[in-house]
Write a protein that binds this DNA or RNA. Structure first.
Length: 307
DNA sequence: ACTGGACCGAATACGAGGTA
DNA sequence: TACCTCGTATTCGGTCCAGT
């Protein structure tokens, strides 16, 4: 590998190929024709001494060598782009940037309505997008640069990811307002739901993969108890709507429960079992640490959730 | 003016996948 | 199985441009 003979445009082609997995689409992305990309790929292959991409059906699949280079090249591309285009201070009023956030519907409900008001008031030409996804998707989307921020409880973070704590969240038990069994037991909203009743009443739980056991079930198991799960749903909104029907109860993050309580006519109770609060926060790739637009976005999220 | 490198469009070959 | 479509790889003849 002779670095002096390296044409940096080849890295643009490589980066586009990593993202598109197609010579034709990579060409469209970087403004070259398909043969030009093919030729560039060939020159890069000779430089690196590796095939880099091999064809599998209609896809160009990266080799292990290409995968090992991808992160470094992507990082370099972003840094060069920032160096060439970055303004001294991000100007929200003039920016046409797209900000993409990823998280569960917990955050899209809790954060996005207010965040969109705040962001679009200051930056009317900005496009704000919130994508549905759990913590598992986090490393991939942050590495490839398709997402600016992910919002989630703590996860095992790679060393290239930055984390900022936003708020603590705890679970509360939720039932339809005036739930018969709870009324008969004389339990008022705000009080602790009796353990026997909590375990006996049919429950809906939030689970994106159909799993039937959560941290709360582990806490119950530790005291030799078990609850009756009859429904799993992938979104907290759906859990709340199901609870509003009256045939199930459930547990929701306290901030989320308060947000939907009045509209859906729900009652909120304390859980009958000790369960540790969760630290909610945002993650981003460290390459954006000093990106002024990204810093501005993080500030807006922090302010909205602080309120 | 010449040379070399990079690109283009067009043509062609070939492989993979979908479909009748 | 044959055929079609789509996409990649390669070649060819040509243009453009920078360097000598």
């Amino acid at each position: 590998m002779n670095f002096a003979s390296l044409d940096l445009n080849l890295l643009r082609v490589f980066d586009a190929l990593m993202q598109e997995r197609s010579v034709t689409k990579a060409g469209e992305r970087v403004g070259l024709s398909q043969p030009a990309v093919s030729s560039a790929l060939n020159r890069l292959r000779h430089l690196v001494g590796d095939q880099l991409f091999v064809r599998e059906g209609n896809m160009m699949v990266p080799t292990p060598r290409a995968l090992s280079l991808a992160e470094t090249v992507r990082d370099a591309m972003v840094r060069i782009d920032q160096a060439l285009t970055e303004q001294a201070v991000f100007d929200p009023a003039r920016s046409g940037r797209t900000f993409r956030l990823l998280g569960s519907d917990y955050f899209s409900t809790l954060l996005m309505p207010q965040l969109s008001v705040r962001v679009l008031a200051a930056a009317p030409n900005v496009l704000l997008q919130f994508l549905d996804g759990g913590p598992r998707a986090m490393p991939h989307v942050l590495t490839e640069g398709s997402i600016d921020l992910t919002l989630s409880p703590p996860v095992d973070i790679p060393e290239w990811a930055a984390f900022q704590f936003l708020f603590k969240s705890r679970l509360v038990a939720v039932a339809k307002a005036g739930h018969d069994a709870l009324a008969q037991a004389g339990v008022a909203p705000g009080e602790t739901m009796p353990l026997d009743l909590f375990c006996a009443l049919p429950q809906a739980i939030c689970s994106t993969d159909g799993g039937l056991s959560t941290g709360l079930d582990s806490a119950l198991g530790a005291i030799g108890r078990r609850r009756r799960v009859v429904l799993t749903l992938p979104h907290f909104q759906a859990i709340a709507l199901a609870i509003a029907q009256g045939h199930v109860i459930g547990s929701l993050p306290v901030q989320f429960a308060h947000r939907v309580r009045d509209r859906l006519k729900l009652d909120i109770f304390e859980l009958p079992v000790g369960f540790a609060d969760m630290d909610m926060g945002m993650y981003w790739h460290r390459r954006y640490d000093r990106d002024s637009a990204h810093m501005w976005l993080r500030e807006q999220v922090e302010v909205v959730l602080g309120e």
